[in-house]
Structures are given as structure tokens and as C-alpha cells.
Amino acid sequence: MIRKTGVLLLAVMLLAPFAGPAFAKDMKAAMVTDVGGINDQSFNQSAWAGMERVRDELGIEVVYMESNQEADYAPNLETLYDQENDLIWGIGFMMGDKVREAAEINPEQKYACIDMFYQDPPKNLVGVNFKEQECAFLVGYIAGKMSKVNKVGFVGGMDFDVIHRFHYGFMAGVKTANPECEVLVQYAGAFDDVTKGKSIANQMYQKGADIVFHAAGFTGTGVIEAAKENNRYAIGVDMDQNFLAPDNVITSAVKRVDNGIFNVTRDLKEGKFAGGGNVVYGLAEGGVDIAPTSDKHVPKAILDEVALLKKDVISGKVKVPANKTEYEEVFK
């Protein structure tokens, strides 16, 4: 599947120059992937999908550069600077500092970085963040309602604020749906360790949990494998991961990196670049959501409740905790 898309992409890229004059060459945008590469089935791939939408809908020329190692971030940013792009994206917080450095030394070039919250950034730089806690809250609610044994699990990738937002949002969702429900929590310490994800999830299923939510990138594919083998439920993250195990992934906490990329680039085109600050996308802005395939496994009654809950989160009636302190204020 991925290979096929790759070939197709290649074909499109090869043919693109011949289909050239259709696009007005007035604007160019570019992105640098992190070491995960462009076909990582999650973060970078989603970002590139956003760039492709930028190309198709806004007629902006787009390009990406992959990084083999961390030492490639800076030269890749510099190469894209040389090619006079209007906006350069850094994908992922590992690149955050390099993007900021580039922005400081090239004040006339505009930059943006995903998942990076900058402390007073220069005017040509914007940090783009997501309210992961909101989508995690909704999938948590589903898990709380659907657990038959009052026990669910959470597998985190690494112990830092983005994953904490998933963690405490999920806990809050579970407790809102079902205060009796217990949540098992474990961090894998890596985003790329499938075996570890699998063994953690296996343990949780053995302890009796019937639904496990992961926010662990590639590690999480191990969680989904475990769900398949134990014939239990799992909840995916970042993308709609139902395709990985159609009978076991009941929903996914979707983070629309593509929408973030699209919105910021569109704003730039319309002359509203939010430089010198940070933007945060939540449910209200379409930055996060639950997967569209949720209706396959989740009963309609629960989805209706989720829809109501979503409205309350958007209107601010329900405040979703984003970290431990906020969580304990509400649920202790």
C-alpha cells in the first residue's frame, strides 16, 4: 500500500514539471522531516499530506527534504532557505531549536515548527501545537463507556508534555464516563520499539484490561498487534489506525497535523501569518478529533453522547486537563 503510494507519488513528482504552467509560481512552501522519514505512517506522513493539500487547493509549490540523522536538520533548513521558499516547516519538536536558530539568523525568511511551543519567538517564526488532551478525552469517554470489566489501559511513548496531554485527557474521559473504571498506565520510553509496546499491552490484557489506548507512535503498532492476538480492543493515535486491525481498533485519537500545516500556510497566503507567537489547534479548530471509522464498533448511543461532549468542550463548558496538576484538581 505504502509502496504503491510511493510509486504514485514518484510518478506525480516526475510528471509535475511537465504539468508545470498550471500553477502560478508565486508561492513556495517546504518542509524538513525528522529522522522518521516521509513514510512513517504517522507524524511526517500526515504533515506531507497537509502539504499536498496546500499544493492542490492553494496552488502553492511544495517540497520536502528528509533527514537521515539529526545533523541534517540545519543543512536541510539552509538548503530550503537558499531556494527562496516563502515558508519553511520543521516537523517535530526535536527540530525546534534548529528552526529557531535559522529564524534568528535569517530574519527575512518565515518559519514554522510543529509541536513546539516557543517562548517569545522572533517575528518570522510560529510554533504550532495541538490540544491532544481533547481528542484523548473523547476516546477516554468511549473507553470508559465500553469497558465491560471497568479496567482500561494507557501506553505512553515518552514521558513529556505532549504525551502527558494524551495521558491525562484520556484519564479524565474515562472517569467522566465511568468513575469506577480503573486505568492502568505505563510508559514505553521509546517511539520506535514495537516489541516493548506489545509486551506492555500483553501485560495489561493479562491483568484484565479490555481496552488499551496508546500514544506511542510506532511503539503503538505493537499495542495493536497485542490487541489482535488477545482478541481485545485497542485505541489508535495520530491517524485513523483502524486499518491496522479492523476488528480491534475501535477508535483513534486523531491529531490533524495536516490541518495545522494547511491552516498556517493558507493564513500566510492570505497575509495573516501568525509569526512571533504560537498557535494551538483543538477540537474547535479541527486540529484534533476522533477517527471517522469509530461508528464501526462504538454503539450509536455512545457516539451521540460523545458528540454532545464535543460541543461542551468546544464551548468551554467542559475543561479538559492537560497535565497531572490540572487532572488532580478535578478528579481528586
Binding site: L10, V63, D72, T79, Q83
Partner: peptide, 20 residues
């Protein structure tokens, strides 16, 4: 390595795999 990475961008647009 440095020159190779530049092939990713226009006008060539070769993917990193080909370059490697």
C-alpha cells in the same frame, strides 16, 4: 552527503532512497 541531500529539492526531486 551534503550535495546528495540537495537532490531532494527541485529541479530533480529525487527521494532520499534513490540518493542513498
Amino acid at each position: 552527503k551534503f550535495g546528495g541531500a540537495r537532490i531532494q529539492s527541485p529541479p530533480v526531486r529525487a527521494p532520499m532512497e534513490i540518493i542513498n
